[in-house]
Simulated scan of single mutants.
Amino acid sequence: MPFTLATWNINSIRLRAALVARLLREEAPDVLCLQECKSPVDKMPLDVFRAQGYTHCVARGQKCYNGVAILSRLPLEDCGDRDFADLGHARHVAARLENGVTIHNFYVPAGGDIPDRAQNEKFGQKLDYLTAMRDHFHAERPKRSILVGDLNIAPREDDVWNHKQLLKVVSHTPVEVAQLAETQGAGGWVDVTRKDIPEGNLYSWWSYRSPDWDAADKGRRLDHVWASPDIANAAHSSRILRAVRGWDQPSDHAPVFASFDL
C-alpha cells in the first residue's frame, strides 16, 4: 500500500485550519501529522478536514499549549500515547495503519533560550524527554514504524544556516545533538529526509523575528521523518515545502513530506 506522509508544526490548528485545508487540498498526503495544535481535541476543527476527505483522526490536545494530531484518508487505529519524562504534556500520539505500520507523532520540548539545565528548567525537561524516548525505544525496538514530528533539534552542520554561530543556541548545541543521536540510535531509526537528500543545506523552520525570512534564509531543520530499519528502504521522494512558510499568516515551520512503498 503506497502512501505519502507529511509532518507539520502548525502553531495553532484552530488559527490555521484554512492553511491545513489548503495543504490537504493542494498536496493531498495520505497522512498528515500536526504538532503544536494548541487545542483540546474536542475544539479542533476536524470537520474542516473531514470535508477534504480526511475522515480519520487520532489526537491528543490541551488548551493553548502543545498538542499532536494525525489526520488520515486511510483508516487508523489509536495506539495510545506516552507522557515521556512525566511532564503532563500532550506531546506524543501513535496510530497504526491497516498495513501494520505504526506512526509516532512527536512534539519534543523546545527547551527555552538558555542551554543550561541549572539555569533553565525547560532545557532540562527537553534533555529528560529525549532520554525517556531513548530508553523506551531501547527497550521496545520499533518495527514497521515511522517517527515524525517537530523534534526541535537540527542535528547536522548543514541543518542550520550557520553551524559555528549556533553551537551555543538551543536546538543545535552539542549536548542536544548528542542526545538526539542516542535517541535515534536506540531505535535504529533512519533519517528518511537525509537518506533521500544526503547533501546540502536543508531547513524546515525560519523565525518570525526575521523581517524577510526568505531572503535572509536563516533556517534550521527541526522537523523530521524517521523510519525503522525494516521499512527505511521503502521510503523515497522526501521534500520540504518551503513555499508554505510564505503563505498568509503562516506557521514558522514548513511541512516535510516522504512517501513509502509498503
Rank of each mutant, 00 (worst) to 15 (best):
S210Y: 11
Q125K: 02
L97G: 09
L15S: 01
L74T: 00
S39A: 15
L97D: 10
L166E: 04
Q62P: 01
M133K: 01
D159T: 07
L127F: 00
G111W: 06
S251T: 09
S39C: 12
A51W: 01
R73N: 09
W189C: 09
L241G: 08
G185F: 06
C37S: 14
K218V: 03
N9H: 13
R96K: 15
H89G: 00
E140R: 00
D248M: 05
A235T: 06
K195W: 09
L5T: 08
I103N: 05
I231P: 09
L127Y: 01
D113Y: 02
I114W: 06
G124H: 03
L97Y: 09
T7H: 07
W189A: 06
W161T: 01
Q52I: 02
R16P: 02
M133F: 13
L222R: 01
S12R: 02
N11K: 04
A178K: 04
Y65L: 04
L76N: 03
V256K: 13
L97F: 07
Q179N: 04
A51I: 13
F123M: 02
F257L: 15
W161I: 04
A178W: 05
R209Q: 13
T193H: 06
N105G: 07
G219L: 08
E27R: 15
I70K: 00
A28Q: 15
G124T: 02
L180K: 01
A110P: 10
E176Q: 03
Y203A: 11
A17V: 10
K126P: 01
K126W: 06
A216M: 14
K38D: 14
T102F: 03
N9Y: 10
K168F: 04
